[in-house]
Amino acid sequence: MKYEGVLRKMETEFTDPINYYLIFESDFINLNQVLEKEMEFRFLHYQCLNCGLDKPIYRQGFCRSCFFEIPQAAEWIMKPELSKAHLDQEDRDLEYEKKVQLQPHIVYLANSSNVKVGVTRRSQVPTRWIDQGAHEAIEIVEVPNRYLAGITEVALKDHVSDKTNWRTMLKNEIKDENLVEWRDNLEKYIPEEVKSYFISNNSETNIHFPVLKYPTKLNSLNLEKSQQFKGKLMGIKGQYLIFEDNTVFNVRSSEGLYVSIEIN
């Protein structure tokens, strides 16, 4: 089977284990059904996820000019504490910013390589945790806008990591943690204006990934440089494809690459 299209982050379905899909304009691949099969990738050209032009991808699937202009790539995306829509202040596009920022957000703990704190929209639970390769996660607060979630994350970063070690996550060198205990211990560090949104009676969510064999050492695939790659798919975790020869491919960081994929 042969497929062609621009890479976007894999879509997921919260099942046991997680179901993964590569979605193209007029076709899709259920990657769980490709496990133990050969996949051959060829990089054909670029296609910016915003303007659609064949221009080198700068970040997040966008060409350089789009990245610095469109609201989907503004700084508040990565730094929620910079959100200003609740003050009726525009960054790049107030209508878009209100739509995204002024909706329920979750501050959570996720354990993928270690316990880390993060922020996501309520509508992105548990998708965000799956994308990070977390095998367990728990919500700490649910707030009405992105700004409150952002200042909570900043306050908690002094006491818990906000980073994932992707190598540890992919090798599955992980340990289970008591996330309820972590949540309760962190409550005292939550900013005063957010304390009333603390969630005190929930349990952790467990996530299982479709991996037949974890890599022992990691070779990261850069499809732009190598132009093509062929390997047997042995697992999918986070936004990574894991191959039999220990090659790992970060689909999300390859967004905007137009590729052909052949499956045997």
Rank of each mutant, 00 (worst) to 15 (best):
Val117Gly: 03
Met78Asp: 11
Phe62Leu: 15
Glu262Gly: 02
Leu87Val: 07
Cys63Ile: 15
Met1Val: 12
Ser226Gly: 11
Gln47Glu: 10
Tyr214Asn: 15
Leu87His: 05
Gln72Ile: 12
Leu218Arg: 04
Thr15Val: 13
Lys175Arg: 10
Ile140Met: 10
Pro191Ala: 12
Gln33Phe: 15
Thr127Glu: 13
Val160Gln: 04
Ile57Ser: 04
Glu181Met: 07
Phe14Glu: 04
Ser254Tyr: 01
Pro144Glu: 00
Thr168Ala: 12
Ile57Gly: 08
Thr216Lys: 11
Cys63Met: 13
Tyr20Arg: 04
Lys195Gln: 11
Asn32Ile: 15
His208Met: 05
Gln47Ile: 05
Lys237Tyr: 04
Leu223Trp: 05
Tyr189Asn: 13
Phe41Cys: 06
Lys157Ala: 03
Val211Gln: 00
Ile77Arg: 06
Arg92Trp: 02
Phe43Gln: 00
Thr12His: 10
Asn19Asp: 15
Lys225His: 13
Glu177Trp: 01
Phe67Leu: 08
Arg121Thr: 00
Leu35Glu: 02
Leu87Gly: 12
Lys9Leu: 12
His135Gly: 01
Lys9Met: 09
Cys48Ile: 07
Cys51His: 04
Trp76Asp: 03
Thr168Pro: 05
Glu136Trp: 06
Asn172Pro: 03
Arg121Cys: 02
Lys175Pro: 09
Leu31Thr: 12
Lys98Ala: 04
Glu11Val: 08
Gln124His: 13
Ser161Gly: 07
Ala74Val: 12
Val117Ser: 11
Thr127Cys: 00
Lys225Leu: 12
Gln103Pro: 04
Asn30Ile: 11
Phe243Trp: 01
Leu31Phe: 14
Glu142Lys: 05
Val115Leu: 00
Ser226Asn: 10
Glu40Tyr: 07
Asn246Ser: 13
Glu40Lys: 13
Cys51Lys: 10
Gly61Glu: 06
Leu233Arg: 09
Lys217Arg: 08
Leu102Cys: 03
Lys9Val: 09
Trp182Val: 04
Asp158Leu: 03
Glu244Gln: 14
Leu156Thr: 06
Asp93Arg: 08
Ile18Lys: 06
Lys232Pro: 03
Asn201Arg: 15
Pro126Asn: 04
Leu233Gln: 09
Glu40Asn: 13
Gly133Trp: 14
Ile138Arg: 15
Trp129His: 09
Val117Arg: 14
Pro56Asn: 07
His45Phe: 02
Tyr189Ser: 08
Asp16Gly: 08
Gly238Phe: 09
His159Met: 07
Glu11Gln: 06
